[in-house]
Structures are given as structure tokens and as C-alpha cells.
Simulated assay, not measured.
Amino acid sequence: MTENSKVALVTGAASGIGEATARALVAAGAKVYLGDINEEGAKAVATALGSGAEAIQLDVTSAESWEAAVTRITAQSGSLSVLVNNAGIFTPGGLEAIGEAEFQKTFEINALGAFLGMKAVVESMKSAGGGSIVNVSSSAGLVGVKDAIAYSASKWAVRGLSRSAALDLAPYSIRVNSVHPGIVETPIFTGFPREALDMMTAALPQPRLGNPEEIAAMIAFLASDQASFCTGAEYTVDGGYACA
């Protein structure tokens, strides 16, 4: 980022990539709101980050929750200039194994959440004269993934949302890009046995887990004015997963 006037909202900011992104944006000089349904977790991160960060409770599946968050942010800090739609869940299960309720919940958080977030910030970003929206998809949104049909499909949806929104919002100088992390050492993989993670990463061109800071660096770049000619694009940070 190149100036200290940006106001950013990062979802899923209580841990993992969201937390690392909030840290990166605060370090770059932005005022950052850490949105998470886990408000206490977000408060702990915000306290550690100091006056440049503030926690805000946010249920990304609720339009009303988004409206309340954006209203509070604009009242306190002025127009939003950066939105990072990072909140998401991983739901394991192939076509025959996963149920309708699990599939729907995955889409509500991963895809509907990004859709509602973009809609909620458009007017504020117009008032700011433009902005940057970064939607966190996944390498699973670029390739098919066995035994993760709901997760993969929802992340493909985020990819499509980002491309279409980039076209819709370009006249207002609002940029929209998607970031596609690979296998990253975050709480989303907490339930995976270490042996399974080692097997998954062994086949990568860069055979290791990614770390949240590597993803956050890409997001911070796309949020900055250095990326002013970048919109409607997909940025992989996956150790070569999608091309292996």
C-alpha cells in the first residue's frame, strides 16, 4: 500500500489468512476492521495490533450483519476503500457422501458471503472514489478436487463472482480480484493428520505447506495502489498446486 488513508475490512480475521492479512494491512498504514463471527477472537488480534485495528462482529451470511458493519465503519472512519472477503469453511466429502445441508452451508459462507460483502461495500467505495475488493478463493477453485465437492464448487463460484463483479464495478474505479491459496498452514486444516498433509504437499512443485503471511502479502499488494491496473484477475499462491 502506498498511503495511510485506506480503510479496510477483512473477514475471517480472527485467525489464519485473515489474521495475517489484517497484520499486513495495518503494517502498511491502513485502518483495519477485523470482521469475524468469533468477535472475541477478532478482539484479541485487534488488541495485539494496536490502534490501527478494531474488531467487529460479522456474520457474512447475513445481509443485515453486513449493513450494520459497513454503517459502523463509515460512521467511525469514513468510506471503505478495501474489502477482503476471506471468511470461509472447508467441508470434506465427495458427491455421494455429502448431504444437501452441508453443501448449502458451504455455499452460504464461501460464496454467498462474498456476494453479500461486495454488495454491501459498493456505495461506500463509490463515495471514496474507488476501491479494491479481494476475494479469497482457493486453488480448489481452479481445478477439480476429489472428496471436496462442496468446497471446490463454492470456490469456483467465488472465482466467477470476482470476474463478473470486476466488469460491473470497473466504471466506478472499484477493482475486484481473486486470490487462490494452496495448502496453507491455517486452522482450516487442523483436522488433517500430519501424514496426510505431508502426502498432499510432497507432490507439489514446491513441496511444503504455505504460510498465511505469503497469502497476505499478495492480498496487501492487490489492496494497494501499486495494483491500480489489476482487476478481474486470478492470483495463485499455491506452490504450483494448480499447474502440477
Rank of each mutant, 00 (worst) to 15 (best):
L209G: 10
E185Y: 10
A244Q: 11
G113I: 02
A53I: 14
A48R: 15
L112N: 12
I37F: 08
G12E: 03
Q76T: 09
G232L: 01
A220R: 14
I219S: 14
G131E: 05
E108Y: 04
S81P: 11
A20L: 02
G160L: 00
V158Y: 00
T2R: 15
A14H: 12
A244P: 07
I183Y: 04
L222M: 01
A165D: 06
S51V: 15
A153N: 05
S15T: 14
L169E: 00
S127Y: 04
A30R: 10
V45M: 09
G210R: 12
A203Y: 07
P212T: 13
G240V: 13
S127D: 09
G144Y: 07
G144Q: 02
R208E: 13
R23Q: 14
V237H: 07
N211E: 00
T74P: 08
G88Q: 05
Y241H: 06
G16V: 05
N85Y: 02
R208A: 11
E234W: 02
N211A: 14
E214C: 12
S127F: 07
Y172E: 15
G141L: 00
D198Y: 13
F192C: 04
T106M: 01
V184Y: 03
T201G: 14
K155I: 01
I98P: 13
M199E: 13
S228V: 11
A153R: 02
G117C: 03
P207S: 09
L161H: 04
R208G: 08
A68H: 11
E213W: 08
N211K: 09
Y33T: 14
T201Y: 09
F229R: 03
A220H: 08
I37R: 14
V122L: 06
A217I: 11
A153Y: 03
Q57M: 12
S228L: 00
E214L: 05
T190Y: 15
E123L: 15
V7F: 11
N110I: 01
G232V: 01
I183W: 06
A87K: 15
R159N: 02
S65L: 04
A150R: 05
E100R: 05
G18S: 09
T74I: 14
A8V: 15
S124E: 03
G144K: 06
F221C: 12
A44W: 12
I98G: 08
R23S: 15
G93R: 00
V10S: 11
E19H: 15
R175D: 01
C243P: 00
D168F: 10
W156D: 12
V145T: 15
A14N: 06
N177S: 07
F90L: 06
L95Y: 06
V84I: 09
S164Y: 12
Q206P: 09
L34P: 13
V237R: 11
F107E: 04
S173F: 13
A63D: 01
V84Y: 02
L95A: 04
N110P: 05
V145P: 02
G50W: 05
N177Q: 02
A114G: 03
I109H: 07
L49H: 12
D36L: 13
A55T: 06
A170W: 00
G18H: 10
A87D: 06
V82K: 05
A114F: 01
A216T: 07
C230S: 13
G113Y: 09
A217K: 14
S65K: 02
A216K: 13
K126R: 13
A120V: 03
A97S: 09
W66L: 00
G240E: 12
